[in-house]
Design a protein around this nucleic acid. Structure first.
Lengths: 106, 106
DNA sequence: AATATATACCTTGACAGGCGAGGTATATTA
DNA sequence: TAATATACCTCGCCTGTCAAGGTATATATT
């Protein structure tokens, strides 16, 4: 079984921010990490991932910079901002509350 | 705080089916029940509710019939079908699994 | 008598996030 | 030389949510 789009929806940004909280990272790495950690039950599709990066950057929750790889494909790294950290905390709290409510309704 | 649309998304049908599992009911009653149970933190908007009823009925998960009220506004009652019950069980299981995954990613 | 509120249903069209399908480029392995 | 892995990106469709509007009946208030 894998997670449907509708359940994923609304959590993509929080998942990304959580990873960036640990350390700066780039799209491909974040995606691979999530797949491995969830044993392929959960996958952020590339289009989903990159559109989320755009939203987060526009909102000021992350900033990006190109890595200085001298070999291999270029990487665009992302870094979480102070407001991004606040947004993450709110989103996490919202998830905790929603979880409780849904548990009582489902 | 209230639950955002994006977190609600994908759970509306499961919430409705859960109520119908207890007993036949109608839109207004289901909506009221959910509001009261969650202390107004969670509310299915009418348009959302009725479009979910349409989907569920088209899919064969519920059937509807008009109540025989002799006074007051008419009510359209809904009843969960056998396949609806199966669908509910699957949805519930999916929620449990998604919950675990999200907890590890958020 | 007129107005407001509660009950109860419904439709239309806009919006936004997920994603399928397509693309580009570099490096390594078969 | 072809295939695979790494790594990025865009376009346009799809679908569920919901604001805004509507209809109708009954009761409570002014």
């Amino acid at each position: 079984m894998s997670i449907t789009s509708d359940i994923l929806r609304g959590h993509t940004e929080t998942i990304i921010l959580k990873q960036l909280l640990i350390s700066d990272s780039y799209g491909y790495q974040i995606n691979k990490y999530i797949q491995e950690k969830t044993d392929n039950q959960f996958e952020l599709k590339e289009a989903t991932l990159y559109s989320a990066f755009r939203r987060l950057e526009t909102a000021g929750y992350i900033v990006s910079y190109w890595g200085d790889e001298t070999t291999g494909a270029r990487r665009r790294y992302y870094s979480i901002t102070t407001t991004g950290k606040k947004y993450y905390e709110e989103s996490k709290k919202e998830w905790e509350e929603a979880k409780g409510l849904l548990d009582s309704l489902i």
